[in-house]
Nucleic acid binder design. Structure first.
Lengths: 380, 380
DNA sequence: TTGATTTGTTCACTTTCTGAACTTAGTGTC
DNA sequence: GACACTAAGTTCAGAAAGTGAACAAATCAA
């Protein structure tokens, strides 16, 4: 790959990824280098096809030429092992999804590697460019992944323990492969492709069936000492509350996950199959629905407030697949955050809500590969 | 100062500070440099008086010479603005306290600068060496400090808002000065002088009158986006609980701080003036004392468990000034941590308890100056 | 058209690091 | 006690990356 990029070159790519197109002079200032040095670095990256000149900005004096990442300089495949069939997407360096298909899920790593390898030709079929410039595969899964983004330390869902998945896929497919925990992958995609590009410290809370969370700190994904940073789902929110499948009681997951909300409404005899249904019930005054949404919303809000207190992030990004945040649930969450954060902080931490489609995980997976391509995982 | 140290030189100093004495060959490996480069860097730092040769380790082949920081190459003054009179200490590069005195506390920054400047001669009197090599002043205070460690953004205790304290002290005394929040200063001193030297990710929970907390992430103090990372004291632990002076309800501070514990016992009619007193009462079976310690301990344990879940640190260091952790309080804290952390994590995160003396804050303050001297604050 | 202004390039030179050869200071063996 | 063996640390020529100053280029403003 481009494993032989200079440290300065990588720094530059990161700066552009964060700030968008920049002139050479701006880049030089940003990295603290001389214009002379920058000139050379930019030339090399343009020759490599990674950067290209885009807009020309006219001002006083010679106009500046903005350089940007060349979106078609590299392509990535992202696979989500969270659903069956497993979504498989092809993305460019901007995170744009160019092709999508699905493959059967399996618990056998070798079968997965096989399915990916077999799926590649049809995914790439209509895109000869991408075929040639395929630069990495990313895999998102539910579980713990080690720092090298190569080994799955443990996954309850897949029944794994110390599975060197990246290596298995790389050896079978011949493509550089990285794996990552689902929530962390989503955070990386928001940093690289999404709405947190320029933010150095932020946390993403992703609401799917379960509740995921990941932190970026100083512009870097923070994995924690055992890869467990962000396990907000198993923070105790209702001490002595309902038992959780993790073995504890009162975990956030038991009250605020979509799964829990649906289970609670089923237990209350509500015929609701989605968050929207429950929201509808609540808006017509159904007491049980209101109670459930209140309980879930306060729990999630409290957990997020505690996160803000502990880590003081510059942004909380809540991504949700289902329903909307405009109903009771969202309102309660926001209220609970406000009332449980230091008054002098309240409103200081932007909370951004983002509805995402079913491609989040696969796009997140692709972003892991893209991140390794662009910046490398072990840059400071 | 030694503001003109190379980036490599600073990296080396950091490595030694983390790992203790190292041979040149080990250092070269650690920083990923050639032995040749290391040889030169070490020579320069020895000539500067920052490093010195210590032990000689015999093995096969030529014995290796371990290099260590020269503890007397620089001295620092640390002042804690948390008490009146304010402790003022002189420390070497190992964090050893060489002299100590006190100065009157004031809410007027200029008066503080004056008091420090006037206090210096007597503090340095018996130590001509330190006089000559005084390399920085550090100040610890309760409140928020900005990233440059120069300005106090806000301090309720001191009634400040945007006070450029470091500049004021520097201009009056002529010595490079840095300020920091109390809990963050303690964390830095544990990283630099204490029991967390070699740990990259850890959190310090410091129990004094209040509850402070600070995080090290990737070997760096993490301040948060508004300098508020670690404000665990105002995490909501008992939703709808007692009102806190911050304006919210049920903050950890209202149940588990020494102040809160003492207030609760007073409210219960116990004649206890210290944690030990209450522990004694509890050990004789006093139900109120037991109840109070249980409540406080569970709250603190829950907060720490949530911290572990969120950030997965490699170590939790609990420092306490008063009492002991061997009684009921400590036991309950540990239990609460265990029961509120993901079972697969329990026991994975070491919890270290450390009893500290009244010098913690001043030593922490000195460590801020030392850290800036050694490593500089803006190194990656 | 001319001057002002700012971007970006070129080039000679400095700084920092590398690789290979070499020196140094021990241990282990006979 | 001499002699190989081993690993640490130094030296030195040369490569790599960056700097500063001079310069070329491209526009605006008058």
């Amino acid at each position: 790959m481009n494993a032989m990029l200079t440290s300065s070159q990588r720094q530059l790519l990161r700066a552009i990824s964060e700030s968008g197109p920049l002139s050479r002079t701006e880049m030089a200032q940003m990295l603290g280098l001389s214009k002379a040095a920058m000139s050379g670095i930019a030339r090399d990256l343009i020759d490599l096809g990674v950067l290209h000149e885009t807009e020309i900005v006219y001002g006083q004096g010679r106009p500046s030429v903005l350089l940007d990442l060349h979106p078609e300089c590299a392509f990535f495949v992202g696979i989500s092992l969270l659903e069956d069939p497993a979504p498989m997407i092809l993305s460019d360096l901007n995170g744009k999804i160019i092709a999508r298909q699905a493959m059967p899920l399996s618990r056998d790593p070798k079968v997965i590697a096989e399915a990916i390898t077999e799926g590649l030709p049809s995914l790439l079929e209509a895109h000869p460019d991408a075929k040639e410039k395929l630069s990495g595969i990313g895999v998102a899964l539910s579980g713990f992944v080690d720092e090298s983004q190569a080994n799955c330390v443990q996954s309850t869902l897949l029944g794994w323990q110390d599975v060197p998945l990246a290596k298995i896929i790389r050896e079978r497919s011949g493509i550089e492969t990285f794996i990552e925990n689902d929530a962390k992958a989503v955070a990386v995609s928001e940093k690289l492709f999404g709405s947190a590009r320029e933010i150095q410290n932020f946390s993403v809370v992703s609401l799917g069936d379960g509740i995921g969370c990941a932190h970026f700190i100083d512009g870097k994904l923070y994995r924690g000492n055992h890869g467990g940073a962000g396990e907000i789902a198993h923070c105790t929110i209702e001490p002595g509350g309902s038992p959780c499948r993790c073995g504890k009681r009162g975990c956030l997951d038991t009250v605020a996950s979509m799964k829990a909300i649906k289970e609670m409404s089923r237990a209350e005899g509500l015929e609701c199959t989605s968050l929207s249904d429950i929201e509808n019930e609540a808006s017509t005054g159904n007491a049980a629905a209101i109670r459930i949404l209140h309980r879930a919303g306060s729990a999630l809000g409290l957990a997020i407030a505690n996160l803000i207190q502990m880590n003081d992030p510059g942004l909380i990004l809540i991504t949700h697949v289902e329903g909307s945040f405009e109903g009771l649930f969202g309102t309660v969450v926001n209220q609970a955050i406000e009332t449980n954060v230091l008054p002098r902080y309240a409103g200081q931490t932007p909370i951004r809500i983002k509805r995402v489609d079913g491609d989040v995980w696969a796009r997140g997976a692709a972003s892991i590969a893209a991140h390794n391509f662009l910046i490398g995982s072990h840059t400071s």
